[in-house]
């Protein structure tokens, strides 16, 4: 059974442990600006919303990549950026309609969530269970996926 990240924003307190863990896992430093998961703060609504790639099956980033630098990890099913192949053209950053691929100027490459090879550091670090790594069937990401499906098929008139 493939697993994926399940995010329950109702449980998020905005402690940013996930961002710290992600940055440490991928960059070796605690610098939340380098995190691949971001917690958005809706002050008026009093809500914190963790947000990252859902590893959607359409994978616009992967099909748009001109040099085959984004590939499906056989173990986790994650769409992972291979930094040694990425040329830094940034096409994936505008192709992904969820905005989950970001360009990092220091490396000249892009980064996105790759599920840490099957042990997502953000889920491990989250103290409230807002981020969990569970069987894909239960993730409740259907809402987001359904929306993903609209991106290239929505008829013109139904705005």
């Amino acid at each position: 059974m493939q697993k994926s990240l399940h995010i329950d924003a109702n449980k998020c307190t905005g402690c940013l442990q996930c961002e710290m863990a992600c940055s440490y896992e991928n960059h070796g430093v605690f610098n939340i600006s380098k995190s691949r998961i971001k917690v958005f703060n809706f002050e008026h609504a009093g809500r914190k919303v963790p947000y990252t790639c859902t590893q959607c099956s359409e994978a616009w980033c992967m099909t748009a990549c001109p040099v085959d630098a984004i590939r499906i990890d056989a173990g986790t099913g994650a769409k992972a950026v291979h930094e040694d192949i990425c040329v830094g053209c940034k096409v994936c950053t505008i192709a992904c309609p969820f905005g989950t691929v970001n360009y990092i100027a220091e490396t000249g490459k892009v980064q996105k969530c790759d599920l840490c090879g099957g042990e997502p550091a953000c889920a491990d670090a989250c103290p409230t269970g807002a981020i969990t790594y569970v069987d894909a069937d239960w993730t409740g990401l259907d809402k987001m996926r359904a929306w993903a499906g609209k991106t290239d098929t929505q008829p013109r008139a139904t705005a």
């Binding site: 971001k38 940034k90 950053t93 505008i94 192709a95 992904c96 309609p97 969820f98 905005g99 989950t100 691929v101 970001n102 360009y103 990092i104 100027a105 929306w147 609209k150 991106t151 290239d152 929505q154 139904t158 705005a159």
Partner: peptide
């Protein structure tokens, strides 16, 4: 360079 893809998302899905 952060999350610019959502501009596509918003436009394309109207």
């Amino acid at each position: 360079t952060e999350h610019v893809g959502v501009l596509r998302g918003l436009i394309q899905t109207r």
